[in-house]
Design a protein around this nucleic acid. Structure first.
Length: 661
RNA sequence: GGGGUUGUAGCUCAGUCGGUUAGAGUGCCAGCCUGUCACGCUGGAAGUCGCGGGUUCGAGCCCCGUCAGCCCCGCCA
């Protein structure tokens, strides 16, 4: 099809803005054809741009025949420039902002055609692999346009918020240095320095601290961070952080600049949240909610019932009671009819969840219409049951689930089930007060989890490792514990939690070289290593580093929660799959051997298939083009290559195979 | 690294106990149609049942392997 030129065509209006007030005006519009409705001698077309949709119309009686022919040739997603007169519709569409008017076409330019789309833009439920392959089309869809707009809005509000507070934005390096501790680094080989590597930053942590030493006092950056770890629904290998750092501050000062920002951001999506947010010590969070990022939309708390089973016939529970606090029996009680009438099948499903969290099973006690049923009923004497009911506050129907084990084990199981059961029960419980208690899905429950432990014992490394990072300041009251009982030492670290997601985390940092050295020593980084890896930091701390601290917010997660979607990919323009691949560009991919050589890297022949043209034994001049450099295919790509077309082999030996092509 | 789950027409899916020529809706193509807006009506084209192997007289269906998407565990200072 012959295309028209944009030429000097100028848009006069946004499609979504046209109203009856514009009637009679000649307008020029641009956009994509959403759909043509061809009624024969009367043709309608919906023209979409970023701001909305308006109906174009032409009919046989009044329109130029050439224009009508052209209009009938238009298909979905053609790119158009349209000129016409705004007119009141004969039959209006109340579902459309522009539904009272239509544009009687006087001119039409087809700026580009479009092949039939691989998936419809209107439908929900299109396979995500397909959406990711054609992400540029996926992003045309209204939902993603909204999400990206919201994301942009959040970034703007954030920048304005901190600018008003006199923060300055400073960029930090993307090519930086690999550091021990923490997540796996993405590495970038250095061409200039054989055998040496840059690392992409897991966060600008050290740089923002150094900017405090530099005297900027208040820093912000919206920056990309990289962590080479396995993905989840709320985790991508590259993600965006709202990174701030301040000098001469205490924990409350940092929280004090974040809370009003959260209030503003919540307002963008019409939610009222009130600051200050609750502060919950880590220890209580784990004890009551079994999580360091509790979802406070559910108010139910875990309870310790170990003591009730000291003389129980149920060995599993009694053994815990006799373990001197090593192991405990903890329980969650869900009151109400919905909980009391859960089916065996439903309970089995929750047991499966518990197993996945590392539990052996899921002991339960259910008080239903027909009285008590329990997986350990035969060990439950009437007196014990009464004590249990009193301890858990059972007055009517309901369900109690139990976990036995260490604090960490029981927290994991019950912390997970607390939210899962609450969400399910909120949907099925008829008593609105209870449903609200279980899970209020419209609420935004912010809180600060504070007083994290500074260190935790790592079985794998057989040493203490930093819970947050090694630059986190020990709690001033616990300084003496640093060497005597490191596991008990609290940190001045705080996480911002929203609806069960960690949306931010920060700390007051160590700002004197001596404490920093102590810290390194405790986590097994010797003086020489500290010097080699963090010498610049120790130097900086020695030259007048101010007390400082800060926080980083996960922008993607925050926008995900504000957008009300359950997957971080929905708020990232070009995300990776769960296997850390970009389906659109097919990255990562193999590179030419020459590139590898320049970077002083050797190909991993175990993982590489070589593919070339067919063997040819005749004279070289008949072989057509000179043998081109071989390209490499991964096993995944090699699967798509058909054997008759290509000769390909794994692990070519020198002098054979690849070389002999 | 481990567990679960999904893969059939461009898309969303159905496909019984292993049995003849693999279906539906939608999209696409063509024709008709003056008030549609999920336009309507008529007709048509469209399949590597993810890929490879095996069992079988016979495999979309059963078995093994593999690739890919999603969710979870480990991991993520």
């Amino acid at each position: 099809m012959k295309l028209d030129r944009l030429g000097d065509f100028q848009r006069t209006h946004r499609n979504g803005d046209l109203r009856l007030d514009h009637a009679g005006q000649t307008v020029r519009l641009l956009g994509w054809c959403r759909r043509v409705r061809n009624l024969g001698s009367l043709v309608f077309l919906d023209l979409r741009d970023r701001w909305g949709l308006v109906q174009l119309v032409a009919n046989e009686e009044t329109a130029d025949p050439e224009l009508l022919t052209k209009l009938k040739a238009v298909r979905s997603e053609f790119v158009l420039a349209a000129e016409g007169v705004v007119a009141e519709r004969e039959s209006k569409n109340p579902n459309l902002a522009t539904g009272d008017v239509e544009i009687r076409l006087t001119g039409l330019r087809i700026l580009n055609t479009a092949a039939p789309l691989p998936f419809p833009l209107e439908d929900e439920g299109v396979g995500e692999d397909l959406r990711l392959t054609y992400r540029f089309l996926d992003l045309r869809r209204e939902q993603l346009q909204r999400n990206m707009l919201l994301r942009s809005e959040v970034a703007n509000l954030t920048r304005n918020h901190f600018r008003e507070l006199d923060f300055i934005e400073v960029e930090t390096p993307i090519l930086t240095k690999s550091t021990p501790e923490g997540a796996r680094d993405y590495l970038v080989p250095s061409r200039v320095h054989a055998g040496e590597f840059f690392a992409l930053p897991q966060s600008p942590q050290l740089f923002k601290q150094l900017l405090q030493v530099a005297g900027f006092e208040r820093y912000i950056q919206i920056c990309r961070c990289f962590r080479d770890e396995d993905l989840r629904a709320d985790r991508q290998p590259e993600f965006t952080q709202i990174d701030i750092e301040m000098s001469f501050v205490r924990q409350e000062d940092v929280q004090g600049v974040i809370e009003p920002l959260m209030v503003k951001l919540a307002q963008v999506v019409g939610k009222d949240v009130t600051a200050p947010f609750p502060r919950l010590p880590y220890r209580d969070a784990m004890e009551w909610y079994g999580s360091d990022k509790p979802d406070l939309r559910c108010a139910l708390k875990i309870q310790d019932v170990t003591a009730l089973f000291a003389a129980s016939g149920f060995n599993l529970f009694r053994a815990a009671a006799e373990s001197q606090g090593q192991r405990r029996v903890r329980a969650l009680f869900f009151p109400g009819e919905a909980a009391g009438s859960l089916s065996r099948k439903a309970l089995d499903a929750y047991q499966e969840q518990a197993r996945q969290m590392g539990a052996g099973g899921l002991p339960y006690a259910k008080w239903g219409r027909d009285g008590l049923s329990s997986s350990f009923k035969k060990f439950l004497e009437p007196a014990d049951e009464a004590a249990l009911r009193q301890r858990l506050g059972v007055t009517g129907e309901g369900l109690a689930v139990f976990a036995v084990g260490t604090d960490a084990q029981t927290s994991k199981v019950l912390g997970d089930l607390r939210v899962k059961l609450a969400v399910d029960l909120a949907a099925s419980e008829r008593d609105p007060a209870l449903a609200h208690l279980f899970h209020d899905k419209n609420a935004y429950a912010f809180l600060w989890v504070v007083d994290f432990p500074l260190l935790e014992w790592s079985e794998e490394a057989q040493r203490f490792v930093a819970c947050h990072h090694p630059f986190t300041s020990p709690h001033p009251e616990d300084l003496d514990l640093l060497e005597t009982d490191p596991g008990k030492c609290r940190a001045v670290a705080y996480d911002l939690v929203l609806n069960g997601f960690e949306v931010g985390g920060g700390s007051i940092r160590i700002h004197d070289a001596e404490t920093q050295s102590r810290m390194f020593r405790i986590i097994g980084i010797g003086e020489a290593e500290a010097r080699a890896k963090f010498g610049f930091l120790l130097d900086a701390l020695a030259f007048g580093a101010p007390p400082h601290g800060g926080l980083a917010l996960g922008l993607d997660r925050l926008v995900m929660l504000l957008a009300g979607v359950d997957n971080i990919r929905e708020v990232i323009a070009f995300p990776k799959t769960a296997q850390a691949r970009c389906l659109m560009t097919d990255a990562p991919g193999p590179v030419d051997e020459r590139q590898l050589r320049e970077l002083h890297l050797a190909p991993d022949t175990q993982q590489t298939y070589w593919v070339g043209t067919l063997f040819f034994d005749g004279p070289a001049e008949l072989a057509g083009p000179a043998p081109r450099p071989l390209s490499q295919l991964t096993p995944r790509q090699a699967q798509g290559v058909s054997l008759p077309t290509f000769e390909f082999m794994k692990n070519p030996e020198p002098g054979r195979g690849a070389e002999s092509l």
